[in-house]
């Protein structure tokens, strides 16, 4: 019992020590998040950020040798709910303003910054057996379509596309996140899925992308913020700064994201 409480205090002291020294260093050198940082952070990020943030995490770790970044990728709506329920999180990157607002309202986050914008694209299996060539084809009853759940950003943004195109699409399945939609396409279980352009790019040759014309396409913006209750706020803020930096923007642009 005594040993446990002593080590808890020690841990607490260590954490404050790290936070103190971290914040001083990031004040000294905010842009490149200099060398004084250490400890680990957990980043909850939208599923569509899987590839970009994995790359950014590696670069951030390489620039800050004492730092370990752990990611949890899922639907932004699911992540927002997790944060509201007290999931340990240091940074939240959402695929829509709505889910970020949810945690801001709940008081877990203040002043998020938008770092990227994404638009939708149709993903079909490489063979494209159902011969999908346009958004309108998705409304055909014979075409099996996978979408995201309506509360997930990729689901609500796809819905905007259908509204713009004045069509009604009845999917065969509403998946928990955009990567699940993509996997149903790569497995060939559906004829088409509406995902982000970045997902089509990330999937490479496993899917074929059918572009959605700009006049009917819809976009979603990606806000990011450090979680106020973070145990390692200095590193969390440094990671946010890194994502917003030119180096971060370069990675995101390479993966197909647009600038906000």
């Amino acid at each position: 019992m005594h040993r446990i409480s002593v080590s808890v205090i020690a841990l607490g002291l260590a954490a404050t020590g790290v936070a103190g020294c971290g914040s001083s260093s990031s004040v000294a050198d905010p842009a490149t998040s200099g060398s004084g940082l250490s400890g680990s952070i957990t980043v909850l990020a939208a599923a569509s950020l899987t590839e970009s943030f994995t790359t950014l995490g590696q670069q951030f770790e390489a620039a800050n040798p004492g730092v370990k970044v752990t990611f949890s990728f899922a639907a932004s709506s699911a992540l927002a709910t997790q944060i509201d329920n007290g999931a340990p999180a240091d940074v939240f990157a959402s695929a829509s303003a709505k889910n970020m607002d949810q945690v801001v309202t709940a008081g877990y986050v203040t002043s998020p910054t938008t770092f990227a914008v994404n638009v939708m694209e149709i993903a079909v299996p490489p063979a494209n057996a159902a011969n999908v060539t346009s958004v309108n084809d998705l409304a055909k009853p014979a075409v099996k379509v996978a979408l995201c759940q309506p509360q997930v950003p990729c689901g609500s943004t796809a819905e905007k596309v259908f509204t713009n195109a004045k069509i009604t699409v009845t999917p065969v399945t509403e998946e928990p996140d955009v990567k699940s939609v993509l996997s149903k396409v790569t497995l060939g279980e559906v004829d088409a899925g509406v995902v982000y352009v970045t997902d089509v790019m990330a999937a490479g040759s496993k899917v074929k992308g059918i572009e959605i014309p700009a006049d009917v396409n819809a976009s979603t913006s990606y806000p990011i913020a450090a979680v106020s209750k973070s145990q390692n706020l200095a590193v969390a803020q440094a990671f946010v700064t890194y994502v917003l930096s030119p180096a971060g923007a370069k990675v995101l642009a390479a993966d197909g994201f647009q600038k906000p």
């Binding site: 699911a78 709910t81 996978a146 759940q149 999917p171 399945t173 509403e174």
Partner: peptide, 21 residues
């Protein structure tokens, strides 16, 4: 089976998604 209301969205799946909404 995926998930679509009325066709494949069973109670446990409905509960899982309801937690988000």
């Amino acid at each position: 089976a995926g998930s679509f209301p009325g066709r494949t969205e069973t109670m446990p799946i409905a509960i899982y998604y309801a937690l988000e909404t």
